[in-house]
C-alpha cells in the first residue's frame, strides 16, 4: 500500500482485529452454488410458474387461443374425474411393485456379484447391461417380449405342444408387466451401489457368522443387510421418484392400455394435455403428481430415513 495519511499509519501500527481472513464456508458456497442455483431456478421456476398459470386457467384453442381464469376449478374438478382416481391407484400399484421388486432384485444381483467367481468382470458387465437400455427401448423390448403375437411365452408354449399364444398384456397383468420391466431397468443401478456398500463390510464379520454357524439366510439377514440400510433407503427414495415419473416406457409399451388399465398419472397428464388439449386440466393434475412424489419421498424419510441417516 502506498504511503498514506497519518491516520492510516496509526491504523496500520495498531494490531488489526480483522486482517486477511480466509474465505468463509458461506461465502465460498455462495460463490460456487449461486450461479448454478440461479440457472436451476430459472429453468425450473419458469416451467413451474407457467404450469401454475395454466392450471388456474381454462385454455381454449378452437376459435382462437383464449385463456379464461377459472381459479381452482381444475384442481377441484379432477377429484370428480374417474380416470384421475383410477390413475392414482394405477400409479400407486405400479410404484409400490416397482420399488419392492427393484430392491429385491438389486439385493439379489449385488449378492451374486459379491461372490468370488471366475470372470467376475464379464458377469458384472452382463448384469449391468439393462442399465444401459433407455426406458423407451425397455418399453419396446418388454412389449415385444410379453405380447401374444411376438412373445417368448408363446414360443415356449408352442415348443411344448401348446396351440395358443400367451399374452401378458391383458387388463389383469399389464401393470405388473410394466413394474417388472421398470424393475429390470432400475435394479442394476441399485445393485451397483449396494455392491459397493457390501464391499465395505469387514470380512471378519463373516468369519464370526461362520463360527456362530449362521445359515446363509441368517448371515445375509444379520450381517449383510444391516449395513446396507442407508443405501437401501436412498434408493427406495430414488426409485420411488423415478417410478412415479415414468412416462416414456409406458407410452411406448402400452399407451395406457388396454383401455385405461395402465393409464398412470403421467399418462393421464399426457393424454389430457396433448390429446385432449386441455392444458389447464393437465397442469392441475401434474401438480397433484408433484405433491404425491414429494409426499411419498417425505413419507419414506419419516418412517425409514430418519432412523438410518446419520
Amino acid at each position: 500500500m502506498a504511503v498514506g495519511s497519518a491516520g492510516q499509519a496509526i491504523q496500520a501500527s495498531t494490531p488489526s482485529r480483522k486482517p486477511r481472513r480466509e474465505m468463509s464456508d458461506t461465502r465460498f458456497a455462495f460463490l460456487i452454488g449461486l450461479p448454478v442455483l440461479v440457472f436451476l431456478m430459472l429453468v425450473v421456476a419458469y416451467p413451474l410458474g407457467y404450469a401454475i398459470y395454466m392450471s388456474l386457467h381454462q385454455i381454449v384453442f378452437f376459435g382462437g387461443y383464449r385463456a379464461n381464469f377459472v381459479g381452482l376449478k381444475n384442481f377441484i374438478d379432477v377429484w370428480s374425474d374417474k380416470s384421475f382416481i383410477n390413475a392414482i391407484w394405477i400409479t400407486l400399484r405400479f410404484t409400490v411393485e416397482s420399488v419392492v421388486l427393484t430392491m429385491i432384485l438389486g439385493l439379489c444381483l449385488a449378492s451374486i456379484m459379491n461372490q468370488r467367481i471366475r470372470m467376475a468382470g464379464l458377469v458384472r458387465t452382463l448384469l449391468f447391461l439393462p442399465w444401459c437400455v433407455s426406458s423407451y427401448a425397455a418399453g419396446l423390448m418388454f412389449g415385444q417380449l410379453v405380447r401374444g403375437q411376438t412373445g417368448i411365452l408363446t414360443t415356449i408354449s408352442f415348443t411344448f405342444g401348446g396351440t395358443q399364444g400367451v399374452d401378458l398384456m391383458g387388463r389383469a397383468t399389464v401393470v405388473e408387466v410394466l413394474a417388472v420391466a421398470n424393475a429390470w431397468l432400475m435394479a442394476p443401478l441399485v445393485a451397483f451401489f449396494l455392491l459397493a456398500n457390501m464391499k465395505t463390510i469387514p470380512k471378519r464379520l463373516y468369519d464370526l457368522a461362520a463360527i456362530d454357524r449362521l445359515t446363509a439366510w441368517e448371515t445375509f439377514r444379520y450381517v449383510t443387510l444391516p449395513p446396507l440400510q442407508f443405501t437401501l433407503f436412498v434408493f427406495a427414495s430414488i426409485t420411488t421418484v423415478l417410478s412415479m415419473k415414468m412416462f416414456d416406457m409406458i407410452l411406448i409399451m402400452t399407451g395406457g392400455g388396454p383401455g385405461t388399465a395402465s393409464a398412470t398419472l403421467t399418462y393421464q397428464i399426457y393424454k389430457r394435455s396433448f390429446k385432449d388439449l386441455n392444458l389447464g386440466y393437465g397442469a392441475a393434475m401434474s401438480f397433484y403428481l408433484l405433491f404425491f412424489i414429494l409426499g411419498a419421498t417425505f413419507l419414506i424419510y419419516l418412517v425409514w430415513g430418519r432412523r438410518v441417516s446419520r
Binding site: P15, R17, K18, P19, R20, R21, E22
Partner: peptide, 9 residues
C-alpha cells in the same frame, strides 16, 4: 504476545 485470532491456519 502477537494476536493471531484472525490469521488463517
Amino acid at each position: 504476545n502477537v494476536n493471531v485470532t484472525d490469521l488463517p491456519p
